[in-house]
């Protein structure tokens, strides 16, 4: 990737497969995460992100493939190797009838921490997630955002080599979300390898050094933001703000030659097209004929959202 010497690989995932009955939830997923690197798995609900995380942390059996952390194989019986992994589950996993400090103490001890080191780690983590002044309150008195932050603090408490974060900001107010993203960015700087799953394009762009775009159990593309956006190539992303029959309009423009994908989001028609300038008249014409009226036109730099659209023909957030 870059010219500088590469940090050692912490997590290596090779050819991972998992089937639930007839559904193949994870199909041949492979990726590596290096020391200090934050890797994002970006994909819609049901893409297989949580399944991948559960296998990587040894909670779920895989049907095929290999997972190693620092070269040590991980599976459901790998007791010692699991000490190097921290998990932040997608759904809150904290005790509501214990205080934040008691929650941290319990899970810290479970990972073998104790004494002064446990205490100092707890204080550090509480500080990092902004809960230091509420440490001794029962967590069922916390707001949703505070509970989420504690959920994260528990995962990073024992300073794991690899931290797995499964959509840690879902359902969090913008302020808490900001705090969460900042504390995670700090972990990457400290040398932790971080696997971060999300269906928010902005989070992946902001936080992750590299992103794997996952859909229907497959990683469709992988790379830095710049590398991924390059996949869209010379194509442009066009956003048409319109009123009227947007469904019909989407269908109409989607059928035009040179249009890579078309979706509606919040009253905006989003398209990936070969050449925005040349195609614009035909696009406006098609929308008009379909019974909608264009109120505004934006031609934007493609982002990861556009990459997803380009790869799958669907919008990230609507794909579920």
């Amino acid at each position: 990737m870059t010219g500088e010497p590469q940090a050692p690989v912490v997590l290596s995932v090779r050819g991972l497969r998992k089937r639930y009955g007839d559904l193949e939830a994870v199909k041949d997923v492979s990726f590596d995460i290096r020391e200090g690197e934050t890797y994002g798995l970006l994909g819609p609900n049901g893409a297989g992100k949580s399944t991948t995380i559960s296998i990587v942390c040894g909670l779920l059996r895989r049907d095929a493939g290999e997972v190693t952390v620092d070269g040590k194989p991980i599976d459901t019986g790998a007791v010692a190797a699991k000490a190097g992994i921290g998990v932040v589950p997608q759904d809150l996993a904290i005790y509501p009838d214990l205080s934040a400090r008691e929650n941290l103490t319990f899970f810290g001890r479970l990972y073998g921490l104790g004494g002064a080191r446990l205490k100092s780690r707890i204080d550090t983590c509480l500080e990092l997630v902004g809960l230091a002044d509420r440490a001794n309150e029962r967590t069922d008195h916390f707001s949703g955002g505070m509970q989420r932050r504690l959920n994260i603090a528990i995962g990073m408490l024992h300073e794991p080599r690899l931290l797995l974060l499964d959509e840690p900001t879902v359902g969090v107010d913008p302020q808490s979300r900001n705090a969460i993203l900042e504390s995670i960015a700090a972990l990457g700087r400290e040398g932790m390898a971080v696997l971060y799953t999300t269906h928010y394009m902005e989070e992946a762009e902001r936080l992750c050094d590299r992103v794997g775009i996952i859909d229907a159990g497959e990683i469709r593309a992988e790379g830095t933001r710049r590398e991924l956006v390059a996949l869209v190539g010379q194509r442009d992303e066009v956003r048409l703000t319109a009123t009227g029959d947007l469904g019909a309009a989407t269908k109409a423009v989607g059928a035009l030659p040179g249009v890579g994908g078309a979706v509606v989001r919040d009253g905006v028609l989003e398209l990936v097209v070969d050449d925005a300038r040349g195609m614009l008249p035909r696009l406006l014409d098609a929308v008009d004929k379909a019974g909608a009226t264009v109120r505004g036109v934006d031609v934007v730099q493609p982002d990861l959202e556009a990459v997803f659209l380009h790869l799958t023909g669907r919008a990230l957030r609507d794909a579920s």
Partner: peptide
């Protein structure tokens, strides 16, 4: 149900 069991089981324990 609360997810804490999974969290415990993800730890270095039998």
């Amino acid at each position: 149900r609360a997810g804490t069991l999974a969290r415990i089981l993800a730890g270095p324990i039998r």
